[in-house]
Amino acid sequence: MSARREVAIVSYAQTSFAPHTKLNDAELVMEAVTAALERAQLPRKQIGFCVSGSSDYLTGMPFSFVGALDAVGAWPPIQESHVEMDGAWALYEAWVRLLHGDIDTALVYAFGRSSLGDLQDVLVAQLDPYYLAPLGVDPNSLAALQARALLDTGRASERDFAEVATRCKRTAGGAPLDAPYVVSPLRAHDCPPVNDGAAAIVLAAGDRARALCKRPAWIRGIDHRIEAHSLGARDLTRSSSTTLAAVEAGVHTAPIEIAELHAPYSHQELIVKEALQLGDGVRINPSGGALAANPLMVAGLARIGEAAQQILDDNARRTLGHATSGPCLQQNLVCVMEASS
């Protein structure tokens, strides 16, 4: 087998992640996609492959991603795909597609308007329809069960949760431990905000990446793994799928300088950090992470985009982007990026 083709992120752009946007999906995507393409100086007609991540459950209508394609332009016909997942998994598909070797560029985007419904109701629909969904168990409650299990191990305290929240949310005066519980042991500062937004990444292979970008963020490894859906059948305090994906993505072959972790709840950052075996020298979530802004279906892709941007901006030589999906860190993706040697 010949050596794997080199693929890099050559540009990243996002909209503001506001509590609510009045833009529709296509307008939101237009803003992110246009900015990403302009930064790469890549005309729309030269995009080899286009793939997006979003969820119909947020918009409340089927095939809502088709309308968002207006932001790219799908006539004459283009090569296009979609995943009903966070955009990080769309990026994985684009990476695989570029390995085929017949095209040199790909556009990945994600969008989510989380403000359209009550997420505590909407996200019940991601659960199995027999044992969990009929109980109406909401995402905050599921995360709280995980947080309690972590506290019970003695590996973390509520103060540790608050410290993560304070750093990510940059709360003036810190996150108070006497604040009321939303669902104990989680307080409001431990839970993600509701945000609308879109993000876009341009990928390019080999010499095309070098031509489009002064300092591409080369994807050295990317892998995603999943655990059992049933929460009672796995150890909620460990993220074994993250650990496995990290090994497969080659995280430990050299030091990571900056890691962007997709941890919507404060305790989840501690679990993911441990699963990745990141040392204390690694800067975690300088962007603020999903605790600062959590547009659903976008926040994972944004972690990879933020980690790539640190290389594009010459702030780091080796970074990591992580994305998660499903209740209590069920599925995890790890992407390792490096500047050219």
Binding site: A144, L145, A147, A149, P180, V183, S184, L186
Partner: peptide, 15 residues
């Protein structure tokens, strides 16, 4: 009980 979470304000679809 191997883990638990206390719901302060039940939602309409809770048991």
């Amino acid at each position: 009980v191997v883990s638990w979470a206390w719901v302060v304000e039940p939602r309409p679809n809770h048991p």
